[in-house]
Structures are given as structure tokens and as C-alpha cells.
Write a protein that binds this DNA or RNA. Structure first.
Length: 505
RNA sequence: CGCCCGUUCGUCUAGUUGGCCUAGGACGCAAGGUUUUCAUCCUUGAAAUCAGGGGUUCGAAUCCCCUACGGGUGACCA
């Protein structure tokens, strides 16, 4: 049975790169009939952010990524918050010390910082590794008695992994193939902090093992520490899971991975939902609030680094799950494209259930103080305008005139299309409209065309003139569809009022 | 700077067992059409000498090596 996990740290809002990682884990688990676990990695108390965990859970839920186990869900392998598993980790660190794979280190953070700065000033780099550990303050250099004394005296200590001096660490990444790192390039990472908490590295390995995780699918930024994790599994005597390191999501412009700042700078959301920073009250926009459908958002995100291998692009969660495979994930980072994101939403909007669109549009109209419009009418309007909308919110700029007579007429359009004889010509057409018994688009079209021919009117100016009177601008769907939807009475009022208004100018 | 990972149209990518690739699709862009608008729709087009250079081979985007460039990482953070 395949078991995978998504393990975010609640240090702020989850950004879309994280959502994508969760998504691929979800696809992988569902495809294999396995389980998806949510684990909160909150071993750093200093970076705790109020509301972040709740935000993460809600965002994932909105995105349609559902977990089989996790905090607030439960499961046999809980608790699923590392802060609640605190007591578990120490024994494994102790076991590593006993087996000679780890050691106590008494150097303070300040001492190490000073050392690092001094070495760097001289042009060297400092690493707590096989070269330096014998000169530092730890249980490898101190006598057993001294170590015991220090610990008994309550002196702060950390536990570091004893990395072998000369060994090639090799592992296979599902996406990248064989990855090799020489141990001489690795440092003796702290696995247990002086505050009594494990570091990510230890907690991660212990939990993945205890929770019987079979595949670790995470971002590429973890690739450099994977050899360390391999070592940890080996020293603890456990089988390592398989690894897959996902390519990063890059900034739309320039260089580097997508970051929090990019969204506001370039005008698109970097987060699934809106987030208010509890410290600064700074607001970061979200896909949800920007009008994206979760289905479109997820579809767009999935295609940043993966594709089904055929030419499908619009795919449901189920279709993508069915088609998903880790060996179809690309190796290189994907640059986020805001235009394509909009396109995805546009495609979903076209197929969205009409009754949902109607109620969403109704909400928007309410804000414009337009109420008590029947659903039938709203539906007709949506059908006429939705193909040119990317978001439900676009219905307002594209369709408000169906509910509200124009209060002014676009100057540029009037100048371009309104002629002195427009008053007479459109007046004639309006008279013919009065006689019309069956108010249908094609019939109205015939009436207009007959009149144009009969009186040798300039066609383009007539069409556009009528459009301006009805809409207030020279845009919108087919003219005769507008007339039909508006209905005879309203159309005639707009024509007459409009002729009076513009004609006087 | 060290180590690791990567490099096909502006962007996302197809191409994964070398020949069907004079490199395909999508977004975006441009032009034309829908003898009326338009932010829709349709058609067409421009757009990658497959980072560069060496090999291997009858044949390489696909295999190997080098270089360049890009990215990640280098905390008692995850």
C-alpha cells in the first residue's frame, strides 16, 4: 500500500508551489489506491504564525485536495502535528549516539556564528564537519566525564549527526535518476536542538518511518539534504522510502523561484486564498477571491511541470489522477504564466453549471442594487456574454447594461458611428420595430436589413448606432440578440430616449 | 565560493526504447474572416540551427564528454 504525505510548515500562507506539491502527492496516492497524509511540521516554535495551519487546511480543502489522515481528520498514525509528537524524537537521537552515529555538541550558536564570520573574513568557509569537529566543543573531543558533567549541570547542548569522512552517498530519485554526493561535502547537521525539539531532518525521518511513508514527493529545494536523510535512515536501521524531487515554480519574469513578493509586484495571486498577515495586517491576494474556480486553479497548477502525454489540457481532478505518473513530471523549473491561468478559468467558465452561474451573477447584481430579476432573464444574459468573460466578475462589465439603461454614451463610439441622419434613419427603424409582432433576433434582423435597403442607409452606421443606444458603447454580443433579450418594450424605450439624448448634441 | 540539479518557440510543453522531427500542441502575439461592434469564435501566420562545442553512429533534440548559462542549497528554518 502506497502512503505519501504532504508536510507543510505553518510559518505563513501556503503558496501555490506548495499546493502543487500537495496535488502531485494526491494524484500519486489516488492513482495507486494509496493514502495521503497531512502532517504539520511545526518543530520551530520561533517561526510559529497564528492562523497559518488553519489557512493551509482551508486552502487545501478549497483546492479539492482531500487527505486520508491528518490533524482534524485522525488516523492510526497520529498525532499528525510534530509539536504533539515531541516526546518521540529524543529516543532516536539517543539511539544514534549510542550506536556511534551522532554526538553531543556544546558550542553555542553565538560561538559558531563568530567562528563562521572569522573564517569567512579570511576567505574560507566554515562547516561543522569532519575537518572541524575535532577542534570544537563536543563529546568527540571531551572526555566522557566532562560530557556527563556538562549535561548534569544543565548546560545546553545539541545533537549532531556524525557524517562519515570519505564516502559517496548515492540514491535514486524517481524524477532525476541517480544522485551522488560525497560525504566530505556534507556537514554534521544538528538533528536535535537545544530547546528540546528535533530539527526538520530528524523529525522528518522518524515520522516518515513511523507513519510508514513509502514515497517522499517534495520540492527540489530538498534535494541537497536528501543524502543526509539517506544517512539517517541507514543509521537508524530503517529502509528509506523512494524519493521524487519536484521542479520548482519560477517567477514569471527574471530569475529565481516564485516568491510571495512576485504576486503583488506582477498583479496575480501567489496564494490559493487571501491571507492577512497577523503581524502587519498586510493582505496578500488569493485565487479564490480573484474569481478562479478551484477546478481551473488546480488544472492550471497541475500542468506546470506535468502533462498527460497527449494533447488534452482541460482535465478534471479525476482525469488527471487517472493520467498521472511521476515519470511524466519534468525536471526543469516551470515559469508561472498569468495569462494561461486566466485562459484555464475561461475554459471552465464556459462549461460551468448554469444555475451556479446564475446565482453568482445575482450576488454581483445585488451589489449594483439590482434585485428582483427573474432567473430566466439572467440566464439569457449569461448565455449571450459568457464566452467573452474569464471570470464571473466579468459579467458586470460585459452585461450590466442588460439590467440598467445607459446613463451616457461612449464618446469615441458616438463620434465614430453617429451621423446626422442617424436620428431619422434609426427613427424609421424604430417605427418598424413597433409594428413587429414576434420579437425574435432573426426577424428583427430582417426588418433592419429591409429598411437599410429600402432607404439606402449606411449599414455599418445603422447597426452601430442602434448598438450605442442600447448598450451605451460599441461592444457586446450580436446586436439582434441584445434586442431580443432586452425585449420589445425596453428596446424601444432605449432607442427613443437615446435618439433624443444624442440627437440634441 | 563549494556541492547538487537543470537547459526544445516569449511562456507551459510533446519528443523518454536514437531514424516517421524539413521538431507537434497550448497560451500569448500578428493578419484575415464572420459583407455591423467586440475582449468571443474560425482560419492563417510569425515564432525553437533542440544552450554551445566535441565525440559515438549509416543516422542524435534523443547516448557520452567538456564548456557556458540558469536554478537550488550551504541556520540550534522548514
Amino acid at each position: 500500500m502506497v502512503r505519501v504525505r504532504f508536510a507543510p510548515s505553518p510559518t505563513g500562507p501556503l503558496h501555490i508551489g506548495g499546493v502543487r506539491t500537495a496535488l502531485y502527492n494526491y494524484f500519486f496516492a489516488k492513482k495507486q489506491g494509496g493514502k495521503l497524509i497531512l502532517r504539520i511540521e511545526d518543530t520551530d516554535q520561533t517561526r510559529f504564525v497564528e492562523g497559518a495551519e488553519k489557512y493551509i487546511q482551508e486552502s487545501l480543502k478549497w483546492s479539492g485536495i482531500h487527505f486520508d489522515e491528518g490533524p482534524n481528520i485522525g488516523g492510526e498514525f497520529g498525532p499528525y502535528r510534530q509539536s504533539e509528537r515531541k516526546e518521540l524524537y529524543r529516543q532516536y537521537a539517543d539511539q544514534l549516539i549510542e550506536d556511534g552515529y551522532a554526538y553531543y555538541a556544546f558550542d553555542t550558536a553565538e560561538e559558531l556564528k563568530a567562528l563562521r564570520e572569522k573564517e569567512e573574513a579570511e576567505g574560507h568557509k566554515f562547516q561543522y564537519d569532519s575537518k572541524h569537529r575535532k577542534d570544537l566543543n563536543n563529546s568527540l573531543t571531551l572526555s566522557k566525564e566532562e560530557v556527563e558533567k556538562k549535561i548534569a549541570a544543565g548546560e545546553n547542548f545539541t545533537i549532531r549527526l556524525l557524517v562519515p569522512e570519505d564516502e559517496e552517498i548515492v540514491f535514486t530519485d524517481i524524477i532525476r535518476g541517480e544522485v551522488k554526493v560525497h560525504s566530505s561535502n556534507m556537514d554534521d547537521k544538528i538533528i536535535f536542538k537545544s530547546d528540546g525539539m528535533p530539527t526538520y531532518h530528524l523529525a522528518n525521518i522518524v515520522d516518515d518511518h513511523l507513519m510508514e511513508i513509502t514515497h517522499v514527493i517534495r520540492g527540489e529545494e530538498w534535494l541537497p539534504s536528501a543524502p543526509l536523510h539517506i544517512l539517517l535512515y541507514r543509521y537508524l536501521g530503517w529502509d528509506a522510502p523512494e524519493f521524487a524531487h519536484l521542479p520548482l515554480l519560477l517567477k514569471p519574469d527574471g530569475k529565481g523561484k516564485l516568491s510571495k513578493r512576485d504576486g503583488d509586484r506582477l498583479g496575480f495571486p501567489v496564494f490559493p486564498m487571501e491571507w492577512t498577515d497577523p503581524q502587519t495586517n498586510e493582505i496578500s491576494s488569493g485565487y479564490k477571491e480573484s474569481g478562479y474556480f478551484p477546478e481551473a486553479f488546480i488544472n492550471m497548477l497541475a500542468f506546470l511541470g506535468w502533462n498527460p502525454g497527449d494533447e488534452r489540457e482541460i482535465m478534471s481532478m479525476d482525469e488527471m489522477t487517472e493520467a498521472f505518473s511521476l515519470d511524466r513530471v519534468s525536471k526543469s523549473g516551470a515559469r508561472f504564466d498569468a495569462d494561461k491561468a486566466k485562459w484555464f478559468n475561461h475554459e471552465y467558465l464556459q462549461k460551468y453549471p448554469m444555475e451556479k452561474l446564475v446565482s453568482a451573477f445575482k450576488e454581483l447584481l445585488k451589489k449594483e442594487n439590482i434585485e428582483e430579476v427573474c432567473d430566466d432573464y439572467i440566464e439569457k444574459v449569461i448565455k449571450a456574454i459568457k464566452d467573452r468573460a474569464d471570470f464571473v466578475e466579468d459579467f458586470i462589465p460585459h452585461g450590466l447594461y442588460f439590467f440598467k439603461r445607459p446613463e451616457s454614451y461612449d464618446e469615441v463610439a458616438v463620434k465614430k458611428h453617429w451621423r446626422e441622419n442617424s436620428v431619422t434613419n434609426i427613427g424609421l427603424i424604430a417605427e418598424e420595430f413597433e409594428k413587429c409582432e414576434e420579437w425574435k433576433a432573426d426577424i428583427l434582423e430582417n426588418i433592419v436589413k429591409e429598411q437599410i435597403e429600402k432607404h439606402e442607409m449606411p449599414g455599418g452606421k445603422i447597426f452601430n448606432g442602434i448598438r450605442i443606444l442600447l448598450v451605451g458603447a460599441s461592444s457586446g454580443p450580436h446586436l439582434f440578440d441584445i434586442l431580443e433579450i432586452l425585449g420589445k418594450e425596453e428596446s424601444l424605450i432605449r432607442l427613443k430616449e437615446g435618439i433624443a439624448n444624442i440627437g440634441q448634441e
